[in-house]
Design a protein around this nucleic acid. Sequence first.
RNA 1: UGGGGAGUCGCCAAACGGCAAGGCACCGCCCUUUGGAGGCGGCAUUUGCAGGUUCGAAUCCUGCCUCCCCAGCCA
Length: 555
Amino acid sequence: MSTGNFIKDIIDQDNRTGKWSGRVATRFPPEPNGFLHIGHAKSICLNFSLAEQYSGTCNLRFDDTNPVKEEQQYIDSIKEDVAWLGFDWQDREYYASDYFGRMYQCAVELIKKGKAYVDDISQEKIKEYRGTFTEPGKESPCRDRVIEENLDLFERMKNGEFNDGEKVLRAKIDMASPNLNMRDPVIYRILHASHPRTGDEWCIYPMYDFAHCLEDSIEKITHSICTLEFEDHRPLYDWFLEELGLHHPQQIEFARLNISYSVLSKRRLGILVSENMVDGWDDPRMPTISGLRRRGYTAASIRDFALRIGVAKANSTVDAALLEHCVREELNKTADRVFAVLDPLKVVITNYPEDKTEYFEVENNPEDPASGTRKLQFGRELYIEREDFMETPPKKFFRLAPGRESRLKSAYYITCNEVIKDSNGIIEELHCTYDPESRGGDTADRRKVSGTLHWIYAGSALNVTVRQYDRLFNRENPDGADDFRECINPDSLTVNDKCMAECSLKDIDPGKRVQFFRHGYYIADIKDSVKGRPVFNRIVSLKDTWAKIVKKEGA
RNA sequence: UGGGGAGUCGCCAAACGGCAAGGCACCGCCCUUUGGAGGCGGCAUUUGCAGGUUCGAAUCCUGCCUCCCCAGCCA
């Protein structure tokens, strides 16, 4: 795999021409105003992997230029998430706020060059004067202020002599530019807000366009990778660095990630949390890194996903099935199999001695011989999956049915003889007989049986709670709906506390992933599992051919 | 309608003038003590459309169409 992408093409060419003397320096620059999601993971993987592949560096830089939105808790969670994803920024943990002094000096220099001015007009006026897509803007009356006055005013802005919004510093570029970003953009605003890191040291803060290019420049970044919506800002990025005569990284834009059946914007994700449609930012249904982690996704599978989706400039929506495929592929190789009956149906083996039990050796993971085996207790009364039995089975159903013989995985063949129902006609239990010759799950005559079922010995069954998670949305493109809340999947979470599992699960370590045989991959929830009483989250189901058949045959 | 981008299989995505990779999904078959996994095979005579250049075009030229982004003192 691993075909190229246009960013590698650019880097390769730069290396050929010696543009950066073979150096590659990228950065992941999150604003600490929320939790990271899978879209950020794409960017993280991209930036760190590129650095790795070209023996370069990737900085973790917090773009903390707006204290009214940023919080320390987000800084902490971002660091946790990036590290969990498997990337190491070593000692290169930077903060835009560490550069505030230098940025201020750059602004002063711009003023001295006559390339920036302090504007007194109101926010409304600025907006009005900006013009429209088709009409040029108008110049502010303050635009021609003399340099000395600008210098004085800007210093006083810094010194806190003005209220929020009273004045701004603007770059003096071109009010008639067809690119609205170039119509004298605001580069500093007054914000009497306490900053998570600089406290009350500053009351003026740089705007993104001014700050970001300087951050990149100061860190000697070579390739500044960002998303498509910043394409229009590139001329500004270039303008500042050009005017200031500073190290000038190349900004490269790529398409942000979208995933079907999901929303991936901080705003919408925030609504899900604040309106309690999910249980916090790390709800296992959330596409946040913390949510995916809690759901049971592995860092490796997310990295693999990022690799497979590629990088390009075309807006796209990746099939949610790909993410699921990535985690299945990994867990198939690494997760031990265990038996868990989600919807128990009692089976009595009528020809099996009342007081006898025995143990069967069961392989932990057929994909991994090194995983060894475990012993499972077997006895007269068992539980099997209710859906593994049908009284009147359709054509393609090959599991247990009256008169039919099925294999209990690694144990015996059993034949169903009698169906016991309650007064409502609900099946209460099955009476079966076993074939002693089938010990271990095989017979000398190699006869075919209908299906291999997992089972639990009733005498040692462990009752566990299982949370069956499904896609959060039942519509492929929730963003396309009038209100994305309307397409929330009402069945995105089903809590099942009637499950019976093998008793070895009693002391499973929270955070450990297993395959519930024939069902899917599950993780012992890190938050809600208590000693001796694990709670499992379904990470992803196994591919279900039978479900597909049922669906196709149309109920 | 100004500016900036993008259109290659259902969904991603390669291909850089030489004869349309790969992955996911889907469909067959084989295998299977997981209806899982695995194996094999099938899945774009054609690259938004229309012209043109060329021995040869997804790649170059012309025109058109569609979609996305931009008028925060957010990033």
